[in-house]
Design a binder for these strands. Structure first.
Lengths: 147, 147
DNA sequence: GTATGTGCAAAGGCTTTGCACACGT
DNA sequence: ACGTGTGCAAAGCCTTTGCACATAC
């Protein structure tokens, strides 16, 4: 019972990829979870659970949290500490692209950044300590130019 | 016995240094905060507020949190996400030495590590993005050998 | 003696869980 | 039809705040 679109079978967007992965994991294609997935797919950086709940008017808060839990379990999204009270979540690129975050302790602003050298060093560290690294979540804290 | 100490200038331990800093910042030398400071001074890695509260029997939980807030404000300690529900805290070495953490997503074990190359790359990044970096808190997540 | 420090208890905020009903398969 | 998905409300847990008393200065 494959709902695969065409012979290519390559999902065009992260949301499609995530929905397919959830389906393969045995989850049904419910409408509320789908809305959570699509919201995450439209974001380029971290969003908190409460922000998602605010934007998804017909969706219960519990459903948002449950969907996030399932997706994090499958490695589709990543939980990120954005400094506030609520945790941030963002999609994980299946092709391995990712960024990190600088949080301003003054105004709370979150700025994403990428750095190839940093990626390489992290990769070396993860091999050095006998750990099998699943993800790395680097958050720098500082003061931005406006503060 | 210490041969290097001169008349009340250089604090011999982190706890003394922290208590001096708090005093200079205008805080009085209360007994409960002192116990929190000394507990932190005896730890080499992150401890949570609730763990501290458990160990400090006569000290109120509110006092623990208030002391942590004050010390973090002064940069004496650093808040660290150790993956659980409760936040971790650890002393900041005034001489700049520090380590980072790998958290096992299987058993929750926290392993500290150091890496000079990583430090240098972080330093470069912090200068590149126009941010004034106060601290960096790098947490890798993975599976340890026992899991 | 006065202002800060502290413990207790209550409140706050984010997250999780229980349960009954709706929906996907 | 059956079992999962979902919304609502309540509970849980960490953390913060209010208040009265103790303590440092």
């Amino acid at each position: 019972m494959s709902t695969a679109t065409k012979a290519g079978t390559e999902p065009a967007t992260w949301a499609e990829y995530a929905l397919d992965s959830l389906s393969e994991a045995g989850y049904r294609r419910g409408g509320s979870r789908r809305r959570v997935v699509e919201l995450l797919g439209n974001q380029s950086c971290a969003v908190t659970a409460l922000e998602m709940d605010d934007q998804l008017k017909g969706v219960g808060r519990a459903t948002v949290y449950r969907a996030l839990e399932q997706m994090e379990e499958l490695g589709l999204i990543q939980k990120i500490d954005v400094g506030g009270d609520s945790a941030g979540y963002e999609k994980v690129d299946p092709q391995g692209h990712h960024h990190h975050h600088i949080v301003c302790t003054g105004c709370g602003k979150v700025v994403p950044f990428e750095d190839k050298k940093l990626e390489q060093v992290i990769h070396e560290v993860s091999e050095r300590d006998g750990f099998s690294i699943q993800s790395h979540d680097i958050t720098l804290k500082g003061t931005c130019e406006d503060c």
